[in-house]
Design a protein around this nucleic acid. Structure first.
Length: 196
DNA sequence: CATTTGATGTTCT
DNA sequence: GAACATCAAATGC
């Protein structure tokens, strides 16, 4: 059954870097829409200064990251954009993978409508604030399980290592040496990877 | 084409 | 006040 929902054990793995890689090519289903993940970034408390939960800091916002793997962590960035992360690892280890870009697979017309009809379909979903708007994901869904009928992942297409490129994470220059960690992963052949 | 700026919630100083 | 896991529109070449 290649089309069945990914189970809790997938998200509970402890190595968030490997999980960020493994998420490429997976399909994300939200209501009647489907997208394919093409760009991810790993964030890991407590040692990663770029992570909101650096030092295992708990705030009303970061509390979601301490949930067991398999939940959505959605927060507001720059007061405007809703950014979507997948919580990974066991409970109380605040690891998460930011989904930075996706390719639309199903529900294109609905996405165009929510994004106010951009000229190119690429700009529907080629950025972390863009694709969440295209699907209508907001902080209202923060903390929701990814093992529900409304929101879940499936295996999608298998991706080989030769199709994956790596770089430093984007927009985390404030994080000192941690900013140099090669924890951004993306598919080299996708037209939907975010622009610098 | 490149660079700047306005939008603005949560968190920290 | 300032900074921040961003984006689109305005401005300057």
């Amino acid at each position: 059954m290649t089309n069945s929902m990914l189970s809790a054990s997938f998200y509970l793995r402890k190595d968030v870097e490997q999980l960020a890689r493994a998420l490429l090519g997976k399909h994300l289903h939200f209501r009647d829409m489907v997208v394919r993940i093409v760009e991810t970034e790993a964030y890991r408390a407590p040692d990663d200064r770029a992570c909101h939960a650096y030092g295992n800091k708990r705030t009303p916002r970061t509390e979601t990251m301490f949930l067991p793997g398999g939940h959505a962590y959605i927060y507001l960035c720059y007061g405007i954009h809703h950014l979507f992360n997948i919580v990974t690892g066991p409970k109380d280890e605040a690891h998460a993978v930011l989904i930075r870009a996706v390719e639309p697979i199903k529900g294109l017309e609905k996405m165009r409508q929510k994004r106010n009809y951009p000229k190119k379909d690429q700009s529907l979903t080629n950025g972390p604030g863009k694709w969440t708007q295209a699907l209508g994901l907001t902080t209202a869904l923060d903390g929701q399980s990814l093992l529900t009928d409304e929101l879940f992942l499936t295996k999608g297409e298998t991706v080989s290592d030769s199709e994956i490129l790596t770089s430093k994470r984007i927009g985390v220059d404030y994080a000192g040496e941690c900013a140099d960690r090669p924890w951004r992963f993306f598919l080299k052949d996708s037209d939907f990877v975010s622009k610098k």
